[in-house]
Every structure is written in structure tokens, then in C-alpha cells.
Design a protein around this nucleic acid. Sequence first.
DNA 1: CGCACGGTTGACCTGTATCAAGCCGGGTGG
DNA 2: CCACCCGGCTTGATACAGGTCAACCGTGCG
Lengths: 238, 238
Amino acid sequence: MNPHSIKVACSNCNLRELCMPLDLNQEELDRIDAVVGSRRKVKRGATLFRTGERFSSLYAIRTGFFKTRLSSEDGRDQVTGFQMAGEVIGLDGIVNDHHTCDAVALEDAEVCVMPFDRIEEISREVNALQRHVHKIMSREIVREHGVMLLLGSMRAEERVAAFLLNLVQRLHARGFSRSELVLRMTREEIGSYLGLKLETVSRTFSKFVDEGMVEVKQRHVRILKPEALQELVNARVD
Amino acid sequence: MNPHSIKVACSNCNLRELCMPLDLNQEELDRIDAVVGSRRKVKRGATLFRTGERFSSLYAIRTGFFKTRLSSEDGRDQVTGFQMAGEVIGLDGIVNDHHTCDAVALEDAEVCVMPFDRIEEISREVNALQRHVHKIMSREIVREHGVMLLLGSMRAEERVAAFLLNLVQRLHARGFSRSELVLRMTREEIGSYLGLKLETVSRTFSKFVDEGMVEVKQRHVRILKPEALQELVNARVD
DNA sequence: CGCACGGTTGACCTGTATCAAGCCGGGTGG
DNA sequence: CCACCCGGCTTGATACAGGTCAACCGTGCG
């Protein structure tokens, strides 16, 4: 759509510790800079890639917030994840050379475009990058295991609690508050991700508010009792 | 537990087209043989690896049938997948150098042990192997997306139908019948995987039988109307 | 042979979906 | 600047899918 060729060295990027391996010598650093082909801006509501599009690159999010979703022709819709700065999207496309989900920007965003064949080429030479790529993919697999646990065995309250704690923890790792957050997505999108209807998400928020665990004003959420939420998530089922 | 050092060349393995890249010259083939360190037998009910164990290898299943499960201390249990011959397990361990799930044999099994540092080493030299490893990981990510869709948006009948079709399709790719299968797992394990209780799985089977879509005798299942099951899976929700 | 585990089935309960009405806040146009 | 509108959200009433609890059955193993 709107590719930009402004290149900024990864070695200078303030997200480096989030999206690149750490212990590199200068030569390796220079090599890794070559992984990023260009940058690309994505407007709120626009897609970075869509189901069926040819896969060519992974994308490291510099700024903004994305959702990924499966949209099958038969009308089922499933949000498979929310991604923020420092996270990598596009891994789904590697198997079949085509993307199998949509990536939609939930706010104006900018990504680093990393052509995958270049990633493969350089990770043959820089062991740390090779290892890094493997870890990123493995991390995604483990994350999805967690979502399966959530969808397969948690009740609505537990899901919403887990969702809020996960979001705020990731934001905190990026220097934001550990108790306050702004939701970038609608109740419906949260519901899709959590396997719930939007009304249930809304009711659950209200319940948490009644119980003094959180404050909710529209999309602004303040977590008052993180331990209480955590306890919900840990609750034994049987 | 019980490592065996019997080595059999991948180049001669009848599962090669399932678990190894295809277009290789002789030199590359020889190199890839070096990926497999040894074999290991796993008795029914035993674990190949457990949550928390140090990660060192991926495993290619030669024979037998596995389930992977998350078993959190708090009593939640979630089956995250069923794996059969030609499939690779252990990818979850790469991120943190420790496994994050258990792999349990549902019948006596044998796996090829592939030390991961050797995989990384050789895939630096053999591009096809590098690409292959990336595809395996990406395939797992895409598979899990599918499970998220199933858990997040399908009703019980749809889940069970999808489960049966998926199993029989994978078995058929391995030379088994496209309509008959033997379940290697209990109703409870199916239920855990599908986010349902075992009674619901049982009832759903019975319903399918009543409707003439399948025959079920214990763990023997014969699919009589695959199109009907497929239609269920494709059913638009709204 | 008999026990134990896995599976089926029934009766009832409950959490979440569904349907519906109304609210709130931000953006637009008069 | 205000009125209006619209999308996103909340809340209530009701329906129903699937969970729970319980009894019973079949079969394969010791």
C-alpha cells in the first residue's frame, strides 16, 4: 500500500531489547540492521496483510496496536491475538507462502518490514539471530497454548481477568503503568478473542467494578486489585 | 528414561516425506541424517517430556500416538493437541529452554530424538532444512489458530465434527482409511481438547449415530456421511 | 471371575447467549 | 453553539446449550 523507505538502524532502535537478540558484537549488529527492508505505516482500521495474500515478510511493530483475526467465508470470525510495539506478526504465512489471517491496525501504526528470505539468509550467518527467530516462533506457540487453556477451561470472569492482567503486564514491560490501561479494542473484539459475546464482556467488567477490583470508564481501565484478578485466573476448577 | 542408540538413516525412513524436506541432493541428505541423534521408545501412558524439564531436542514421531497437555498446578488441565507418526513435538521448549507442556504417549511409541543445537547447526548449512524447520513451526501456529477458532466460536456438535474430520484426514494422509478410525484417546481427553465435558462428547457421538452420520463402537468410528459433518463445521453462525 | 475404568444415558441446573431497550459521548452539520 | 445521530456500551428479561450429578452398563485386564 504505502511503503516507506526510511531506514533506521535496529542498532539504534529503542525497541531493540524487545524485538532483537541482545548479546551481539558490532559486526553482528551491522548485519542485523540489514534485516529490516523498510518501514510501513498502517492507518487505524487498515490491514497490514490479509488472508490469502502472498507472504513475503515478517513485521516488527514499532508503534501502534494490531489485532489478528481469522475470517472464514462461512461468517465465523475469531480474533487470534492483539499485538503491540516490539511484537512480530506474520509468522502464519511461512507454511504455505500465503497469509492465513488478517492483521488489522487498531490505531495508527508503523511497522518494520523484514523480508523473510533476508531473515533466513542472515540467520544462517548470525547464530544469535537464528536462535532469536526460533524463540519468537516458539513463544507464539506457547502463547497460543495459553489461549487454548483459557478458551477450553476458563469461565467468563476468569477469561476477562486473564485478559486484563496479560494486557497490563505487556504494557508495563513497555514502560506503561502496571495498573492503568487504555483498551484499544471494542468489547466485541475482546469477546471474539475470549470466546464470549460482547454483552458478557460488558457484564463481567461491571461485575469487577461492583466488587471494587477495577475501575472502568469507557476504554480506560484501572486495576485496583490485581491479586484478586490473579486469584480468579488461578482458581481451581474441580 | 530409556534412550536407544539404534540409528536409521532419515534417507531410508518411510516417513521421510512427512517429516523431512523433499528436494535434496545426496550431500544434503547425508547431512540431514546427522540431525537424528537417536531413537527413544515411550510406553503407553509414559511421558516423552514434562513441563519444567530442560529442553534439548525436538522429537519426530516414528510410531505411536501422543497427546500434549498443559497441566497447571491449579488443577486446570488442557489437552493442546494429538500427534501422530510424522509429526514433530517439543517446539514449545525453545523459548525458555524448558518445556511448558507434557507429551504423553497414548500408545506405545517410538520417536527420533533430534538435538536442537544440531538442528540449528545443520540448518545453517542446508537451506532446505532451515526452511523446513520454519515451516513446521509456522504450521503449528496456524494449527493452533484453527483450534482457537474451534474453541472460540463453535458449538459442541461442530467441534466434534471438526475433530473427527481432522483426525481421519490426517490418518488418511498416512495411508489409513478415509472413513474408519480408531480413537487412541478417551472421551475425557477429547473433551479436554475440545473444551467440552466427556458427557457432552459422548452425547454428541450418540447424536451423530442417531442421525446416521457415523457408526461408533467404543473407540472404533466409521464415518458414513463426511459431507454432513463438513457441513456442520462450515455452518454459518449468525 | 470380578473388578475397575471408560462410556452412556437421564434429570436437573447454571452460565452464557440472545433479544431488546436504553444510555453515553464524540463528531457533524445546521 | 446546540441538536442530532450513531457506534459502542450497559443493563434487563428470557432461552437454551452444555455442565453437573448420578445411576448403570460393557469390556478388557489381572
